[in-house]
Simulated assay, not measured.
Amino acid sequence: MTMNPLKLSKIIPALSIVTVIVFTGCQPKQDPQNNSATDATNKVDIPLIQAQVVAVKLPKQQVCLEDGCTNYDLQTVKTNQQWIDDYFINRMKKAEPNAFADLSDQQVKVPEGEPSLSESSTYVRFVGQNYNLATFAIHSYAYPAGAAHGMYHQEFVNFDLATKKHINVSELIKDGVEQELRDELYVANQNWLDEHNIKKDQLQVSDNYYYGVNGIVFVYPLYELASYAEGMSELNLPYYAAKEFIKAEYLPSLPKVPN
Rank of each mutant, 00 (worst) to 15 (best):
T2D: 05
P5M: 02
P5K: 05
K7Q: 07
I12E: 08
P13G: 12
P13K: 11
P13R: 05
A14T: 14
V18H: 10
V18I: 13
T19E: 02
V20A: 14
F23N: 15
F23Q: 12
Q27M: 15
K29C: 00
D31N: 07
Q33P: 04
N34A: 03
N34P: 01
N35R: 07
N35T: 11
N35Y: 09
S36T: 09
D39T: 14
A40E: 10
T41D: 04
N42M: 05
V44C: 05
L48Q: 14
I49P: 01
A51V: 10
V53D: 02
V54W: 13
V54S: 08
V56G: 10
K60R: 10
Q61H: 15
V63C: 05
C64W: 13
T70L: 01
N71D: 10
N71H: 15
T76Y: 10
T76N: 09
V77W: 09
N80W: 07
N80Y: 08
D85L: 10
Y87V: 03
F88D: 01
F88M: 11
I89A: 00
R91V: 04
E96P: 00
E96H: 04
P97W: 11
P97E: 10
P97M: 06
N98C: 02
N98T: 01
N98S: 04
F100N: 02
V108Y: 13
K109V: 12
K109Y: 15
V110K: 15
P111G: 06
E112V: 13
P115L: 11
L117P: 02
S120L: 00
V124G: 11
R125P: 01
R125V: 09
F126A: 00
V127W: 06
V127P: 03
G128Y: 15
G128A: 08
Q129W: 14
N130A: 04
N130R: 12
Y131I: 15
A137K: 05
S140T: 14
Y141T: 08
Y143I: 07
A145R: 05
A147F: 12
H149K: 09
E155L: 07
F156D: 02
F156G: 00
L161C: 00
A162T: 08
K165A: 08
H166D: 09
I167F: 09
I167A: 03
V169Q: 06
V169A: 08
L172G: 05
L172C: 10
I173V: 14
K174S: 12
D175F: 14
G176T: 10
G176Y: 14
V177D: 07
E178F: 07
Q179Y: 13
Q179L: 09
L185P: 03
Y186F: 14
Y186I: 03
A188C: 08
N189D: 05
N191S: 14
L193I: 07
L193A: 04
L193F: 11
L193R: 04
D194P: 01
H196Y: 10
I198N: 01
Q202E: 14
V205F: 09
N208W: 04
N208R: 06
Y210Q: 03
V213Y: 06
N214M: 11
N214Y: 13
I216M: 02
I216E: 00
V217G: 00
V217S: 00
V219H: 08
V219W: 10
Y223I: 09
L225A: 04
A226M: 06
S227P: 04
A229C: 00
L235P: 04
L237Q: 01
P238D: 13
A241L: 13
E244I: 06
L254I: 13
P255E: 07
K256R: 05
P258V: 10
